[in-house]
Design a binder for these strands. Structure first.
Lengths: 168, 168
DNA sequence: GGTTTTCTTGAATGGCGTACAAGAAAGGTA
DNA sequence: TACCTTTCTTGTACGCCATTCAAGAAAACC
């Protein structure tokens, strides 16, 4: 069932009708509504599923340098670009998605705080730096960049301006 | 007519039906379709209108310090949060909105490059810094923050860590 | 005054998310 | 075995949506 909701990731939420989901899953739309309160609830289930898988993988990389971790996350999550945009678009109008979004940011914020603290960001800048980190990662997800551009942005973000990635 | 499309800003694009727009404008939905090819074209017209007005106002502040300019932009554009999210959500699926989004980023990128260059960012980091700037501003628009948090983020972003805005 | 162009409309179409009453499957208990 | 209850699935229907089309009103032009 949730396998059928790969459609949200690849095709998009608004572009995927409940009928298409039902057909792909070999059932009727009404069946979907027995398992999920509404289409938003189905999206939340997909989000939870996807996030859980990503977190499990991320745990394997937790010892790598901070810049590598962030870059890995961007690479790993890039495929969920459509989910990122639709969550932000629907968060203000859908109770369930708004709640998921809030909790998601609490989680990501805490991970970012730890990462930047370990990377040596002074305590006074930690909150602001965390927000910048989250916004930049979301920006990279929503606006796909070339491999080098991604790396340049993350490198600059995480403070180690290793020089030699400029342009023109 | 475009005055009636204030609905997009305040209520949201998906939440505003063509019928509501037509009623608010004192016409029928069909009339709207004489002036605009589809609902997306109407959104693009609203975006152009809103952007033009903001740019005109921004020109008056072009002599202020870079950090103030960015902060002013965030304050000024915050009311368009719904537009920001819907543009990102629809850019991949709507030709016209995708085109608008591309051109918008070209414009904003060039403004950001100039701003950061004048602020003393080395040429080698300029491209990456510009992207970070754009992503952070978009992030601030999509995730409303308190006055102090906004200021702290922009201050850190623009490099003048003036100290004394930390937390806890 | 007649013709052409500009604008507005009512009615229709197909698709959407969702609700509901009815029934099939499955499981438990005698 | 037969009955009852819970779990699941379905066909059908509703109201709303974006969009289209043929028809007509208003305005502009000659």
């Amino acid at each position: 069932m949730r396998a059928a909701a790969t459609l949200f990731t690849d095709v998009g939420y608004d572009e995927t009708s409940t009928t298409k989901i039902a057909t792909a899953a070999g059932v009727t739309t009404t069946t979907i509504y027995w398992y999920f309160a509404d289409k938003d609830a189905l999206l939340v289930a997909v989000l939870d599923h996807v996030l859980e898988a990503a977190l499990a993988e991320a745990a394997l990389h937790s010892q790598r340098p901070w810049a590598d971790q962030v870059l890995w996350a961007v690479d790993r999550l890039e495929r969920y670009r459509r989910l990122v945009t639709v969550v932000h678009a629907r968060a203000p109008i859908s109770e369930s998605i708004g709640a998921w979004h809030d909790e998601f940011h609490r989680l990501v914020d805490s991970m970012m705080v730890d990462g930047f603290r370990d990377a040596g960001v002074p305590e006074s800048d930690l909150d602001a730096m965390t927000k910048i980190g989250v916004f930049v990662v979301e920006g990279l997800l929503m606006h796909p960049q070339s491999e080098q551009d991604r790396r340049a942005v993350v490198t600059l973000l995480t403070g180690q301006t290793r020089r030699g990635s400029g342009s023109s």
